[in-house]
Design a protein around this nucleic acid. Structure first.
Length: 306
DNA sequence: CGTATTTGACCAGCGC
DNA sequence: GCGCTGGTCAAATACG
C-alpha cells in the first residue's frame, strides 16, 4: 500500500464562490454579507454532517449485512460439519499427547496445514464455503481466529499484529493470564511463552504465545481449553482500558458446550466489537489522523478566511 | 510484603 | 534405551 492518505472533507461540489471585490459597499451591507456567508458555511457544514451521517449509516448497514451473511454461512457450515462428522466427541480427557493428530492440529479447518482432511471427499462446495468463511474472518478481524467454533477441538489460534520491537509476548484478550514458562522451540527462533488463566484458580485454559516465524510482526496465540468462568466483559479487568495498544476483547476460546452458551451473547456484541475495531484501527493509523487533522484545520482556516 | 515474572531443572512422549 | 523436544514446576528475582 502506498500510504499517501488524503482526506478531502471539502466535498462541496460548489466551492465557495468568493465575491469579487466591491469597493463601494457600505458597512452595514458588508456586515450583512458576512453574516450571510457564515450562515451559508454553517448550512454547508450541516449538509456535510448529514452526508457523513448517512454514509455512516450505510456503512453500518453494510456491516450488518456482511455479518448476517457470515452468520448464515457459519450456521450452514456447522450443519454440514455435524452431518459429516457426527462422531466428534472430545470429552475433557486430560490426555497428555505430544503429537496431535494433524487433522485436529490447532483445528486448522481451512486446509492451511496440508489439505488433508478426514472428509477428504473433496466436497468443492464445502471447501468454497470454508474459503469464503476464512475470507470473511480475515475481513472482519485483524485478530483472525484460525479455528472456528464449528471445530469442536478446544484449541484455537489467534494472530495478533504487533510491533516487532515488542518482545513482551503479551496478547491482550481481556482475560487475566499468569505466565508460567517460556521456551525456545526448535522451529522458531523466538521464544514461546506459556500462560495460564489466572482469572479463576480452577480455570483450565492455557495460552501459548509465540512470534510467527514467517512474519515477525505477528504474534501467534494458541488457546487451549474452555474458560469455566464469566468472560472478561463481566469484570473490570479488561486490558483494553489500560492504554497502550487497543485490542478488541473477544472470547477466543470456544469449545464444546461453552460455545452454545457464549454464542448468543457473542453475536449480539460482535457488531459492536467490529465497529470498535474499525474505529480503533482508524484512530491508530497516524496517517489517517494526520489527514483528518489537516482536513479539519484546512476547513477551519478556510472558514476563518471567509 | 505480596504478587507476578523469569528461568533452569525436570518430566513425559516420541522417533530411532 | 537414548536423545530430542515440548510442556510444566518451582525457586529466585523483580516489581509495585
Amino acid at each position: 500500500m502506498d500510504g499517501s492518505s488524503f482526506l478531502d472533507l471539502n466535498t462541496n461540489p460548489f466551492p465557495a464562490k468568493l465575491p469579487k471585490k466591491e469597493v463601494s459597499v457600505s458597512a452595514s451591507t458588508h456586515l450583512k454579507r458576512k453574516w450571510l456567508e457564515q450562515d451559508e458555511s454553517a448550512s454547508e457544514l450541516r449538509e456535510e454532517l448529514n452526508r457523513v451521517n448517512s454514509e455512516n449509516k450505510k456503512l453500518t448497514e453494510m456491516l450488518a449485512r456482511v455479518y448476517e451473511s457470515y452468520n448464515a454461512l457459519h450456521n450452514h457450515l456447522e450443519k454440514l460439519q455435524s452431518r459429516q462428522s457426527p462422531e466428534i466427541d472430545q470429552t475433557d480427557k486430560p490426555i497428555k499427547k505430544r503429537k496431535q493428530d494433524p487433522d485436529d492440529f490447532l483445528g486448522f479447518p481451512f486446509g492451511l496445514s496440508s489439505g488433508k482432511t478426514d472428509n477428504s471427499s473433496s466436497n468443492e462446495d464445502h471447501q468454497q464455503q470454508q474459503q469464503q468463511h476464512e475470507q470473511k474472518n480475515q475481513l472482519l478481524s485483524c485478530k483472525r481466529p484460525v479455528t472456528d467454533s464449528f471445530n469442536k477441538a478446544k484449541v484455537s489460534t489467534v494472530y495478533v499484529p504487533t510491533e516487532t520491537s515488542d518482545t513482551s509476548l503479551t496478547v491482550k484478550d481481556g482475560f487475566q493470564w499468569r505466565k508460567y514458562g517460556q521456551k525456545v522451540t526448535r522451529d522458531n527462533p523466538s521464544p514461546r511463552a506459556y500462560f495460564r488463566c489466572s482469572f479463576a484458580p480452577s480455570c483450565p485454559v492455557k495460552k501459548k504465545v509465540q512470534r510467527s516465524a514467517e512474519d515477525p510482526s505477528l504474534l501467534v496465540a494458541t488457546y487451549e481449553g474452555t474458560h469455566n468462568h464469566l468472560g472478561p466483559n463481566a469484570s473490570e479487568g479488561d486490558a483494553t482500558s489500560h492504554g497502550g495498544s487497543s485490542t478488541v476483547t473477544l472470547d477466543l476460546v470456544h469449545g464444546g458446550h461453552s460455545l452454545l452458551a457464549l454464542e448468543k451473547n457473542e453475536r449480539n456484541t460482535m457488531q459492536e466489537v467490529l465497529i470498535q475495531q474499525m474505529a480503533s484501527s482508524l484512530t491508530k493509523d497516524s496517517k489517517f489522523t494526520a489527514a483528518l487533522a489537516a482536513a479539519i484545520s484546512g476547513r477551519l482556516m478556510e472558514q476563518s478566511r471567509t
